[in-house]
Amino acid sequence: MAIILNLETSTKNCSVSIAKDGVQLCLIEESEENYAHGEKLNQFVDWCIEGAEIEIKDLDAVCVSKGPGSYTGLRIGVSSAKGFAYGLDKPLLAVNTLNVLVDSQINKGFDLIVPMIDARRMEVYTAIFDGQGKQLTETEAKVIDEASFEDLKGKNIVFIGDGAEKCKDVLVHLNAEFVQEFPSAKNMISLSEEKYLQESFEDVAYFEPYYLKDFIAGKKKTQ
Results as ranks from 00 to 15, higher is better:
Ser65Glu: 09
Val102Tyr: 02
Asn96Trp: 07
Gly131Ile: 06
Leu88Asn: 08
Ile128Arg: 06
Cys63Glu: 13
Gln132Asn: 15
Asn99Asp: 15
Leu74Asp: 11
Pro68Ile: 01
Gly87Thr: 10
Lys108Ile: 06
Asp89Val: 06
Tyr125Glu: 05
Gln132Thr: 12
Val100Pro: 05
Asp111Pro: 06
Tyr71Arg: 03
Ser79Gly: 07
Thr126Gly: 08
Asp60Cys: 13
Gly67Phe: 00
Leu92His: 03
Leu88Lys: 09
Leu98Val: 08
Leu59Ser: 09
Gln105Gly: 05
Arg121Ala: 11
Val95Ile: 14
Asn96Gly: 08
Asn99Lys: 15
Ala85Thr: 04
Gly73Pro: 01
Val95Glu: 14
Val100His: 13
Phe110Asp: 07
Met122Arg: 11
Val114Ala: 06
Gly69Leu: 02
Asp60His: 15
Leu92Asn: 05
Leu88Glu: 10
Ser104Ile: 04
Pro115His: 12
Gln105Ser: 11
Val78Asn: 00
Arg121Leu: 12
Val95Cys: 13
Asp111Arg: 09
Gly73Ser: 05
Asp111Tyr: 14
Lys66Met: 09
Val62Gly: 05
Asp118Trp: 13
Gly83Glu: 07
Ala81Tyr: 00
Asn96Lys: 10
Gly131Leu: 07
Leu59Val: 08
Val78Thr: 07
Leu98Asp: 07
Tyr71Cys: 01
Ala119Lys: 09
Val100Tyr: 13
Asn99Glu: 15
Phe84Tyr: 15
Val62Ser: 09
Ala127Tyr: 04
Gly133Glu: 13
Arg75Val: 00
Ser80Lys: 06
Asn99Ala: 11
Ala61Glu: 10
Lys108Tyr: 10
Val64Pro: 04
Asp103Thr: 12
Leu98Met: 12
Gly77Val: 03
Tyr86Ser: 13
Ile128Val: 15
Cys63Ile: 09
Arg75Pro: 00
Arg120Leu: 11
Asp103Gln: 15
Leu88Trp: 10
Asp60Pro: 08
Ser80Ile: 12
Phe84Ser: 01
Asp118Ile: 09
Leu74Gly: 10
Lys82Arg: 13
Leu101Arg: 02
Gln132Val: 12
Lys108Phe: 08
Thr72Cys: 08
Met116Leu: 12
Met116Thr: 14
Pro115Gln: 13
Lys90Arg: 15
Asp130Leu: 06
Ala85Pro: 02
Asn107Phe: 11
Asp118Thr: 12
Gly69Lys: 03
Gly133Tyr: 10
Val114Asn: 04
Met122Leu: 14
Asp103Trp: 09
Leu74Asn: 11
Ser79Tyr: 02
Arg75Trp: 01
Asp103Pro: 00
Ser104Glu: 14
Phe110Tyr: 15
Tyr125Arg: 04
Val102Gln: 02
Phe129Arg: 11
Gly131Val: 07
Ser70Trp: 07
Ala94Ile: 00
Val95Asp: 11
Ile113Phe: 03
Ile128Leu: 08
Gly133His: 13
Leu92Arg: 04
